[in-house]
Amino acid sequence: MTDEQLIAQLKKRDRNALKSVYLNYKTEFFKFMSRYNAKNDVLEDIFQDALIVLYENAQSGKLDALKSTVKTYLFGIGKFMLFKHFRDSKREVPTEETYLFDQYEQAVIEDVYEDEGPNDYQKQMAASFKKLGDKCREILELFYLQGMKLGEITVRQGYDNKDVAKSQKSRCLKSLKQLIGKKDG
């Protein structure tokens, strides 16, 4: 798979493609990072987080005009995260490092790095979400997760017009609220 094909698959939220990135680059990533003397379990965490950032940034179109290879980009995220980890644990790090990430990309890296998993309400929200019908899950995922605009969703899902997509989305949100409400009661 070329980098372009890979990015295209990641944009479609193809997890198998992401799995192949994990398998292809893991050994090399650990080798690349070995010079910084980090523990293996830290590196494993960081590698996984870096892949998630890759996945999310691909989806928001940040990799469409990628100037480096996917590998360089991925390892750059890893290094950024590892240094952040060192700083958090008061270990000295070189300060002259430069990265090619823009503000948005950096925010995603930090968000994934800081993510400590869902709280109870978020877990409940995700569980209720899974109980929605296919159509609702699709439209809500496209909108909130993949960041697609309603106009784009209209075309992709074959809705008659944007208003139909808009009211479908609103109905789905209502069903979700009802599902959550019932669990509370």
Partner: peptide
């Protein structure tokens, strides 16, 4: 919150 939940779940 929905957006955050979906992201974290994924």
């Amino acid at each position: 919150e929905l957006q955050v939940s979906l992201k974290k779940e994924e």
